[in-house]
């Protein structure tokens, strides 16, 4: 059988992504360097404009103040729970199935649900009132609301990802460490963590990148004109409210660079990340 011939079968999909993904990206970068008004040549005016305007520049700080703490909390909790569940728990299938719900339903529905459930007249506040809490907290249409929405969305994502990863580690490794006299904490620290760390690093990177691109939650459960005006909102407004595609592209590029920076930090913290590819669905026992 001629072995080379088959490889052409990847071409349609590769071509598609080149035209619909790589090209627009390049076009976006090009566009961002050619401001709608003003000079005809390439210029950094858009970028200078963005970084010179406190109202725009602030979006980076706002987005980071949401993305960084949220990612840390999400990954740490997901890691702890997934590790505790590594050998299965009661009603596991039911629990994991329920956890898929927010992933499948998507941000918009979760946002609407949070507005109801966590809202001023929602069940949670009613419960708190019943419990005698006098000063009811405000949980929606502000920073807290966005944090809740992102956590509800990304905790299951991160947890399922890590559960799949951790359950793929040969249980015999842990058993043999125990037999050799290691206590549970020592087993985690010396045997399991080194194996889990690359997966945890990738999970961290993915969650951070998603958090940094937050859009619908920031609009629907946040305060899109103030406390939760994230960089994605700024880009959207430039594109579809001011019709300045050039500036919008510049903001999208800045957003991409911030996400890249997050990835770079993770990679720097874990040199071994490179040794671990992100594969796909399929393997693992759960």
């Amino acid at each position: 059988m001629r072995r080379g011939g088959l490889v052409v079968l990847v071409l349609p999909s590769v071509l598609y992504l080149v035209v619909m993904f790589v090209y627009p990206f390049g076009y976006g970068v090009f566009l961002s360097l050619h401001p709608a008004k003003g000079a005809s040549g390439a210029s950094l005016a858009n970028y200078l404009g963005f970084f010179g305007d406190p109202w725009q520049l602030r979006t980076i700080a706002v987005t980071a103040s949401i993305a960084v703490p949220n990612t840390i909390v999400t990954v740490l909790l997901a890691l702890a729970v997934a590790y505790a569940m590594r050998r299965g728990i009661w009603a596991e299938r039911a629990i994991t199935t329920l956890l898929v719900l927010p992933i499948a339903l998507g941000t918009v529905l979760v946002a609407e649900g949070i507005n109801g459930f966590y809202g001023p007249k929602g069940w949670l506040n009613q419960l708190l009132q019943l419990a005698g809490v006098a000063d009811l907290p405000r949980l929606t249409h502000n920073y807290t609301g966005v944090m809740i929405a992102l956590f509800v969305q990304h905790f299951p994502f991160c947890f399922l990802m890590l559960l799949g990863y951790i359950s793929g580690i040969d249980p015999a490794l842990e058993s043999s460490a125990r037999v050799l006299g290691a206590r549970p904490w020592v087993v985690f620290r010396r045997v399991m963590w080194p194996l889990i760390a690359p997966g945890a690093a990738i999970a961290f990177a993915l969650v951070f990148v998603m958090n940094f691109g937050v859009f619908p939650s920031a609009v629907l459960v946040g305060q899109p004109a103030g406390a939760t005006r994230t960089i994605a909102i700024a880009a959207y407004q430039q594109a579809f409210e001011h019709y300045d595609m050039s500036m919008a592209s510049a903001i999208a590029v800045v957003m991409g660079l911030c996400q890249l920076l997050g990835l770079a930090v993770v990679v720097a913290l874990r040199g071994r990340l490179a040794a671990t590819g992100v594969a796909t669905v399929g393997a693992g026992k759960r």
């Binding site: 993915l206 992100v278 594969a279 796909t280």
Partner: peptide, 9 residues
């Protein structure tokens, strides 16, 4: 359910 998200290999 774990297959519904990225799988880390």
């Amino acid at each position: 359910p774990t297959q519904m998200v990225f799988r880390l290999g």
